[in-house]
Write a protein that binds this DNA or RNA. Structure first.
Length: 243
DNA sequence: GTACTGATTGGCT
DNA sequence: GCCAATCAGTACC
């Protein structure tokens, strides 16, 4: 059976009286209200980031990516959760050296590195540091800023709740990415771009997710970063703490 | 709310 | 041949 086929819920008997529940007031807990879904995105205020922004250690770049905007056409996502992967890191894809897949990781910072995970999910990373370093930052979660309908269509989910964009596979899907986007420059207009954005007031840190195969030192390293107070954070949340 | 599990494909140790 | 930087559906509490 295809994944896309959805389980149909049984139709409720027509005799059931459904009372209209009083709606909860909408939570204004999203990270930054500046541009919102209903408030179209203004490009002038948030210039595209230049290559020099990326030429630093992935551990420094990762928290600086929080609050920045990923844009592809009308879809704009604000980054809310990231993880750093570094040279000599037993969890980094670059740990076996340059291969056809990982070559972009060893290129200069400012490019995308997109790989297929579990044969299903396109995971977006942002290459960090100087050419030859072999470092990147995984984008784990985002908050929708514009293009909600396109995001929902690509995700196959008609919701504004956080399930829409909390998880690296979901971010890749929402942006319509495939491995063909690997090595795409984020500092040139067109395609996928990274725009400047507001710095979060507070951040959370924790160990990275899904890297149990790595050495203890790297499993325990607190190289995951998230925007404090944002609902747009993937599971597990209980391992995140203030620095 | 949490727990478990099957899906699916390319890269490599 | 093994297994991965995951997700969504289902069952049960």
């Amino acid at each position: 059976m295809k994944r896309t086929q959805r389980f149909k819920r049984p139709i409720k008997p027509t005799t059931t009286i459904i009372k209209a529940k009083p709606r909860k007031p909408k939570l204004q807990s999203q990270f930054q209200a500046e541009p919102t879904i209903s408030n179209p995105f203004s490009f002038e205020k948030f210039p595209i980031l230049t290559p020099d922004f990326y030429q630093i250690d992935a551990l420094d770049l990762a928290p600086r990516l929080l609050g920045k905007y990923l844009r592809r056409d009308e879809v704009v996502l604000q980054i809310t959760e990231v993880e750093a992967y570094r040279p000599n890191d037993s969890a980094c894809h670059g740990r076996f050296g340059i291969t056809a897949r990982t070559a972009p990781v060893f290129g200069p910072g400012g490019h995308a590195y997109v790989y297929l995970c579990y044969g299903l999910h396109s995971m977006l990373n942002i290459v960090a540091d100087k050419e030859g370093a072999g470092a990147a930052v995984l984008i784990r979660s985002c908050c929708p800023v514009s293009g909600l309908e396109t995001i929902q269509q690509r995700r196959g989910l008609k919701t504004e709740k956080s399930v829409l964009l909390t998880g690296p596979g979901k971010v890749g899907q929402a942006l319509g990415l495939s491995t063909e986007w690997s090595n795409h420059p984020l500092f040139t207009p067109g395609g996928l771009e990274l725009l400047d954005g507001p710095e979060p007031e507070n951040i959370l840190i924790g160990p990275r997710v899904g890297i149990e195969y790595a050495s203890a030192e790297h499993v325990n390293a607190l190289w995951r970063f998230a925007v404090a107070g944002s609902p747009w954070i993937s599971a597990p949340k209980n391992s995140l703490r203030p620095p």
